[in-house]
Structures are given as C-alpha cells and as structure tokens.
Write a protein that binds this DNA or RNA. Structure first.
Lengths: 118, 118
DNA sequence: CATCGATATCGATGTTTGTGGATATCATAT
DNA sequence: ATATGATATCCACAAACATCGATATCGATG
C-alpha cells in the first residue's frame, strides 16, 4: 500500500458520516429494505443508510462512492437496488500500513534533505 | 476510546504534511539541529521539520499542535527548543478502536432508528 | 535589561469538501 | 413503451482547513 492510498483511506474514515455508515454496516444495525441482502452479508442499500443516518439521498450516494473509491466498501447492483458491503481487508491493510510507516525505529525510507544544520 | 477521539486522530493522520512529519519521526530521518535530543528518542524540534518538509515555520507549528492535541505526539520544552516525540501508543489505541468499531459481526451498539421499512 | 534565536499566535487567503435541491439515469414491472 | 421506484449526477453554497507573512512570546545569554 502506497502512502497515497493510505491517506485516501484515512480521509475517507475521518468523516463522521462515513464512519457511521461503516459502523452500522459492521454491526448489522440495518434492517434493510432491500429483499436481496442476507443478514449475514452486513450489507445495505442507499435508502437504508438514508433512513438510519437522516442524511439526504445525494449525500449518502456521495459518501458511499467515496468509500468505494478507496476500497472500504464493495458495490454490487442487485435488481433495482445498489448494495454496498463492508470490506474488512481494506481496514486490515490500512492497519498494517500504519504500523509499517509510523512505528519508530524502522529503516528510513523517506527522502531526507538533511536537518536544518546540513 | 470514544468515536470522537477516533475521528480526531484519523483527521490528524489524513493530512499529507502531518503524515510525513510522523513518518520522518518514526524513521529517525531527521539529523536534528537540537543538541538535546538523543537519536534513540526519535524526536525533533520545529526547525528540523521545517528543513525537511519545506513547509513554513507557522505551518509546522500548527501541524505539531494538531498532532499533540490528539495525542499522536508528545511535547517537551528543552532549553530554547520545543521538542516533539512520537507516541506509538496512540496509534495502537486507534488500531484497536478501528477493529472494535468497524469489523463486521460485533454486537450492535449504534442507535438504530430502524431501516427504511420500520 | 537588552538582544537574539526558536517557537507560538494572529490574520488573511485560497482550496477542499460536506451538504442537499433539482434533475438525469437505470432497472423493473405492467 | 410507459411508468415507477432507486440511485447517480449536477450545481450551488457554506463551513472547515491548510498555508504563510507578520508579529508576539518565550528562553537563554551577555
């Protein structure tokens, strides 16, 4: 995972609305109106998120698109509904990247232009 | 860790400049100009970050303050220098929170107002 | 106490982005 | 084909924020 992707996922997660969407997906908090999503799938359609969050439909569509673009959710059209499903692997990748990039005493792979005295 | 703190840390991490600052701290990429920081401490003073990133001094001070406010770095005044040190525990806490909040099939602790059909 | 180096704060600016109303698109059923 | 429900896109607006020049504050030193 390159730094750009890490930053994109962090930005996607850092918004309250999007974080809430992922939470309710993860917790199975949505009794979906879409008759093509099984409970174990932890998925939801756009209207579900609108109902639970109180956000407008365009806003929800926009957030889901953002989450999909960075790989945090997977999109699947099922009949008239567009269904979204969480992608735990993306979170795991992000966690691994954070550990690799931000934990002290790793080898230096940053371009150093020298300290202020060099 | 409450959701508010998680979002604050994610926002702090999601900025390219701040992420870079944490990277160069973690990797020990700074040959510091401050004579009171030992190499093993992975710390740096403000001027070091200015030199390495090319950002202005006010911008660097602002970013370091942001990082400190959310607990990602620790601040310590040593003589004429203000030194900053990474705090790996904050990242670990964040990782644990992400796993707890966003991994599917946990118990639901989100306030549900019902799906769109309820 | 006066000066100097280091950092923090202030104020302004330009960009990004979250939001929602209006509208278009898409899939399905009749 | 036409209508209807579901979602995506377009557009505009407002709030948040990254950035930096100017200035203030703070610590050390002579």
């Amino acid at each position: 995972m390159n730094t750009e992707s890490v930053l994109a996922r962090l930005s996607a997660l850092a918004d309250k609305s999007r974080f809430t969407i992922l939470q309710i997906m993860a917790k199975g908090a949505i009794g979906t109106c879409c008759d093509r999503i099984e409970a174990y799938e932890n998925g939801c359609c756009v209207a579900d998120v609108v109902a639970v969050t109180g956000l407008s439909q365009p806003t929800v569509s926009h957030h889901l698109k953002t989450l999909e673009k960075v790989g945090l959710v997977r999109k699947e059209v099922r009949g008239p509904w567009t269904c979204y499903f969480p992608n735990p692997e993306a979170i795991e990748e992000l966690i691994n990247a954070l550990r690799a990039e931000l934990y002290p005493s790793g080898k230096c792979d940053v371009d150093i232009q020298g300290g202020c005295c060099s």
